[in-house]
């Protein structure tokens, strides 16, 4: 909550002495950063951490013997954790609505935002799963994971909207998976992506989800085989 206020102060100070750029007025940018912060509370959770932990202490071996679909078990565990965190956000969200006067888009845009947010979440889930799968080979991944989190926050537009980046970089960034996690849902929320652009934006997100899901499956199969070879 304090951070919402700090965000507001920083952007207000910036807008106070300068002309508003890139047709994002002050209230839009405050809405953008606040929603970004709240999204981060969900998206920055490492939903598949359990996989890494189990590889670390070796208990993954017994999981393979159980009559369950192991990746699905990790996903359901992660989903539970995320839902729990999501309920924690609700009070912050209400406070933010009351105190900071967030813009609320019309119901259509809001619905598309949630679809986009869900796709962004799935992209993030796959990205995390792939990272945790690398623990099959390297065991220790904390540093790499933190690096990816920071890069995601910056290149995904959570810290600063991507429309503020140098013009030459923008088209590149828009097609990276990081933008699919944060920037796309946020730009839909503040209305920077008009209804005519929704289909294309969601399409790019969905494409990233399919690509990363495919990579996840390949990584998982290769990793699982490796554990069997080692005898667990």
């Amino acid at each position: 909550m304090v951070r919402v206020f700090l965000l507001r102060t920083v952007w207000t100070a910036l807008y106070a002495h300068n002309a508003a750029p890139a047709n994002l007025p002050l209230h839009a940018i405050i809405t953008y950063s606040t929603v970004a912060l709240l999204m981060g509370l969900v998206l920055d959770i490492d939903q598949t951490r359990l996989l890494h932990d189990k590889l670390h202490d070796g208990s993954i071996a017994t999981d393979f013997m159980k009559p369950i679909n192991v990746p699905l078990y990790f996903f359901s565990d992660g989903t539970g954790e995320v839902l729990f965190h999501a309920t924690l956000i609700v009070p912050s969200l209400i406070l933010a609505l009351v105190l900071v006067h967030l813009d609320v888009p019309d119901p259509g845009a809001l619905a598309v935002f949630f679809v986009s947010f869900l796709l962004g979440y799935l992209v993030g889930l796959c990205l995390n799963f792939i990272l945790n799968c690398t623990a099959f080979w390297t065991l220790e991944i904390s540093a790499v994971q933190l690096i990816v989190t920071w890069v995601t926050d910056l290149l995904g537009g959570q810290l600063v909207p991507l429309v503020f980046f140098p013009a030459a970089l923008q088209p590149v960034l828009a097609f990276l998976p990081f933008a699919a996690m944060f920037s796309t849902p946020l730009l839909i929320y503040v209305g920077r992506i008009p209804p005519s652009g929704w289909a294309a934006a969601l399409g790019v997100q969905f494409a990233w989800f399919v690509i990363l899901a495919a990579v996840s499956i390949v990584m998982w199969r290769a990793g699982a085989r490796r554990v069997v070879v080692q005898g667990g």
Binding site: A13, L14, Y15, H17, N18, P21, V160, F164, F165, P166
Partner: peptide, 10 residues
């Protein structure tokens, strides 16, 4: 990036 868009902050 921010200060490229907004030349100065206070």
């Amino acid at each position: 990036i921010v200060l490229h868009q907004f030349p100065a902050m206070n």
